[in-house]
Design a protein around this nucleic acid. Structure first.
Lengths: 246, 246
DNA sequence: CGGTCACTTGATCGTCTTCAATACCAGTGG
DNA sequence: CCACTGGTATTGAAGACGATCAAGTGACCG
C-alpha cells in the first residue's frame, strides 16, 4: 500500500516484516545502538517516507515535531537571510540523523537534492524510546559531537580560508564521503549537488566555484568528466591546499 | 593548600566542604542535572584549577584526557592553520562545558582571556559518572545541540554576512551574554576580548572591526566609553542589521 | 620618560563579487 | 531529426568590499 501525502510518499511498514532489520542505513546510523530484539519497537515508531528531489521536508523556524533518519539519497541543510542569501550548513547522506533541536523549532531547512527516503520519528515517541534505550541516547550524543567538530572545521573554512583552499577542502571531503574508515578515499566520485549548492556551502558565488574548478583542471589537479563528477589527479597537492599550505 | 603546577594553580577541594554545593556556576552548567545528595561524588571527581589570562589550557590535536567546566572567567576557543591564520569558534563563559571530543584528541585550543577557573574531569572518571547519572548525559546532549545550533548560526554569519552585519550580530549577541532568559538584554556591557579576538571570531581583520565600530558610533548606533565596553544606543537598528535587513 | 601594546585612521591593493554574455545539456514537441 | 526551451555551467570585464601596508594615537608601566 502506498499513500500520497502532499508531495511525499509514505511507505507502509506492513508491506514487509520489521523494516529496520534489513535497513541499509542501520550500520551507518544511530539505530545500530539498538539490538535486533528491540528493533521491532523502533520500527513501529518510524514512519518511512520518500520525497522527490527539490522537496523541502524541514522548514526552518517551523515547530520541530519530528526527527528524521535518512536511509537513501542526500539532502542539503541550510539557513536563509531575509533577502535570500543562503548558507548551506551541511549535506546529510545515508545514516544522517536530523532534527535535533533545542527550542521547539527547527534551526535549519532541509531539501532533498536527490530522491530521499527517511524514517520520521514523532518527537514525543522518540523521547520515550530514548528513555528506554540509553545506548541510543549515548550514540546520539556521539553524533552531535561529531557534527560539532565538523561545524568548527567549517567555521575555520568560512572565516579564514581562500576560495582555492575552500574548494580543495570540499573536494577532499567529498572524496571521503560515505567511505568506511579503513578504506582509501575514492579518486573518482560524484557531486550530487549543483554549483550553486557548492557555492552556498563554501560561502562563495557560483562563478568563483566554476572558475576555481577550471583552474584546478588546468593545473592538473583534477579532471571533470561530467559536470557532476570529479576525478582527483593530484591528491597530495589538493590536501596541502586544503590544509592551508601554499 | 595551594599547589603550583606549570602555570596553573590547583585548588585543594579539602579547603572547603563539598565544593560543588555552593558553586556559582552550577545553575548555569551541566552539573545542575545532579541532585544535592549526589553532588559530593561529582565534587570528588573534579579537580578545581585556576589559570592566568593568556594561558592555553587546551591544545588542539593533543590527547583529550579531560573535560572542563568553566566556573569563572572567559576563554576563547580556536583553531589554527599552519601559517597562523586563526578562527575563534566561540567564547566559553561561566557554566560552559568543554572538551567533548569524538576522537581522542581535542578539536580546538582554549586560551583564557581573563583569569579562568575550571573544574577538570578526567575522561575515564566522567565516563563512569555519566553511566551512573543518565540525567547528566541528557543534559550534555542538550548542551551539544545548543552549541550545534549556535555553530550553524555562525556559519551563516561567516559565509554570508557583511562586515557590518557581523559586527552588529556580535554586539547583539554579547549584549545577551550571561543574561537569564526572562531578563532584558543589557544596553551596556563589557567586551572582555581584544579587537584581534573579535576579528578572528568574525572572520575579519582588526582594522575592519575597528573601522566598523567607529562607523557605528558615528551613526549613533553605539557608544564606546572605554575600549572594552560598549553602550547600545539603537538596539532596533543593530538587530535588523544583524538579521541581514538593510 | 622611553617602551610596549592595543587600538585607530589613512592610502593602496587584491580577491572575490557582480553584471553580462555565451555555452552546454536534457527534455519536449513539431 | 531538429528546433525550441529552461535550467545549469562557463567565461569575461568591471567594480566593491575588505585586506594589507603604514603611520599615528593613547594608555599603561617599569
Amino acid at each position: 500500500m502506498i499513500t500520497l501525502q502532499s508531495r511525499s510518499i509514505v511507505l507502509d511498514p506492513r508491506s514487509g516484516a520489521d523494516p529496520c532489520i534489513h535497513c541499509d542505513a542501520r550500520p551507518l546510523s544511530v539505530c545500530n545502538a539498538i539490538s535486533d530484539a528491540d528493533l521491532a519497537r523502533l520500527g513501529a515508531t518510524a514512519i518511512v517516507t520518500e520525497v522527490a528531489a527539490g522537496s523541502t521536508f524541514i522548514e526552518e523556524a517551523e515547530p520541530a515535531h519530528s526527527f528524521f533518519n535518512i536511509t537513501r539519497g542526500t539532502a542539503k541543510l541550510f539557513k536563509l537571510l531575509p533577502d535570500g542569501r543562503r548558507q548551506i550548513t551541511g549535506f546529510a547522506g545515508v545514516g544522517h540523523f536530523l532534527g535535533l533541536a533545542v527550542s521547539d523549532t527547527y534551526a535549519f531547512s532541509a531539501e532533498a537534492i536527490e530522491p530521499v527516503r527517511f524514517c520520521r520519528f514523532p518527537r514525543a515517541r522518540l523521547r520515550k524510546l530514548l528513555d528506554d534505550f540509553p545506548a541510543m541516547e549515548k550514540r546520539l550524543l556521539e553524533v552531535a559531537v561529531n557534527e560539532l567538530v565538523a561545524a568548527q572545521e567549517q567555521m575555520l573554512l568560512l572565516g579564514r580560508k581562500t576560495a582555492r583552499e575552500r574548494l580543495a577542502s570540499f573536494l577532499v571531503m567529498q572524496s571521503k564521503q560515505g567511505v568506511a574508515c579503513q578504506h582509501r578515499p575514492r579518486m573518482r566520485f560524484p557531486l550530487p549537488m549543483t554549483r550553486s549548492d557548492i557555492a552556498d556551502y563554501l560561502g562563495l558565488t557560483i562563478e568563483t566555484v566554476s572558475r576555481t574548478l577550471t583552474k584546478f583542471r588546468s593545473e592538473g589537479l583534477i579532471e571533470i568528466p561530467g559536470q557532476s563528477e570529479v576525478l582527483i589527479l593530484n591528491r597530495r597537492a589538493l590536501e596541502s591546499l586544503a590544509g592551508g599550505l601554499a
